[in-house]
């Protein structure tokens, strides 16, 4: 009896795999395009692409909290900024080499994320949002005021790019490929995370936290681990950020920086893997192009926020998917 049901029902739902051949081909083409990008575009676009990759790692990490955990953080820039400050400070002033400075930055930031998580996860919902915002503003204030360490409003400069395996990363193409590798690793690991048993539990705590507790899941611990994990990937983005700019300023810790990340997640589609990447492309391009013509990035950012939330609350990726489904469904 059970054998029969097993054979008929265990096969994975067919809908998911219907287009898998086409899908793999598309992903392969996209991969080749990404790798080959520096071969056919100028420095400006290569640098733009590097910035997008960095922003995308940041948005993906924030998406773990916002999209998969249902925990809307408005202070995620804390981890990007902190990691960048750690790396810059220990390299330029603390006398560490690149490898040690990077390790200190990742480890230190992750520990701070653990501590922030302890505080912020005393609440959920809007309370969590307010506490993360307040915590990040405190860090921002420290970066501004504690000038003897952070150099205040002047920021920390003098950072250089590392030379992994002796490869010089100072050229735009080399740095782009370096970022692409890191992005690839982050993307895959975060994708695995969201699909894993733990990731399923995390989504459960987003949708029905009480039920999850009744089923035996430690909701608090699941959220805290995710917070720390997201903090770690935020730190990875911060490391790339400071390598790219060779400089770090308190604005990287500001509410604007956190908001840009959150906008990328929401605009692209929270709780999807592609969403934050698409959102990052949108935000970074807007920021670069708009600031070339108008000096009003903040106002534009605000307007984009309003437009997205009011007219496309589900985000670009799910919105387009829905339209695509309707289109292909209608064709049949």
């Amino acid at each position: 009896m059970t054998d029969v049901t097993d054979n008929t029902t265990i096969a994975a739902p067919p809908v998911e795999r219907r287009n898998s051949g086409l899908r793999i081909a598309l992903y392969a083409a996209l991969g080749i395009l990404l790798v080959a990008l520096p071969l056919f575009s100028g420095d400006f676009y290569i640098n733009l692409a590097s910035q997008i990759l960095i922003a995308a790692i940041f948005a993906l990490s924030l998406n773990l909290l916002v999209g998969y955990g249902g925990l809307s953080s408005l202070g995620h820039a804390s981890f990007l900024g902190l990691s960048a400050y750690f790396a810059a400070w220990f390299f330029t002033r603390g006398g560490l080499d690149h490898t040690s400075a990077a390790l200190v930055a990742l480890l230190g930031t992750t520990i701070v994320a653990g501590f922030f998580g302890l505080i912020a996860l005393r609440a959920s919902g809007l309370g969590f949002l307010m506490i993360t915002l307040a915590l990040s503003q405190v860090l921002w204030g420290v970066a501004f005021r504690w000038a003897s360490v952070t150099n205040g409003d002047n920021g920390l400069s003098g950072m250089t790019r590392p030379m992994p395996f002796g490869i010089d990363l100072n050229g735009p193409a080399a740095f782009y490929w370096f970022s692409l590798v890191i992005f690839g690793i982050s993307f895959v690991l975060m994708a695995i995370f969201t699909e894993s048993a733990f990731g399923s539990a995390l989504r459960g705590t987003r949708d029905q936290p009480r039920r999850m507790a009744a089923l035996g899941f430690d909701v608090w611990l699941i959220r805290w681990i995710t917070f720390v994990y997201a903090g770690f990937w935020g730190a990875v983005a911060g490391l790339l950020y400071v390598y790219y700019h060779k400089y770090i300023h308190p604005t990287s810790l500001s509410i604007t920086a956190s908001a840009e990340g959150l906008l990328s997640v929401i605009a692209g589609g929270s709780g999807t893997l592609g969403g934050p990447v698409v959102g990052s492309i949108l935000v970074v391009m807007l920021k670069n192009y708009a600031s070339a013509y108008v000096e009003r990035w903040n106002m534009l950012l605000g307007i984009v926020f309003l437009v997205i939330v009011i007219f496309m609350p589900e985000g670009l990726v799910p919105g387009t998917k829905r339209l695509w489904k309707r289109f292909t469904g209608g064709a049949k």
Partner: peptide, 21 residues
């Protein structure tokens, strides 16, 4: 499956997709 997962060690597994159990 979530009901089953809640009581198993596997609920902490961050590497293996739930679909493969």
């Amino acid at each position: 499956t979530l009901g089953l997962l809640g009581l198993q060690k596997a609920r902490w597994n961050m590497l293996r997709p739930l679909a493969t159990y």
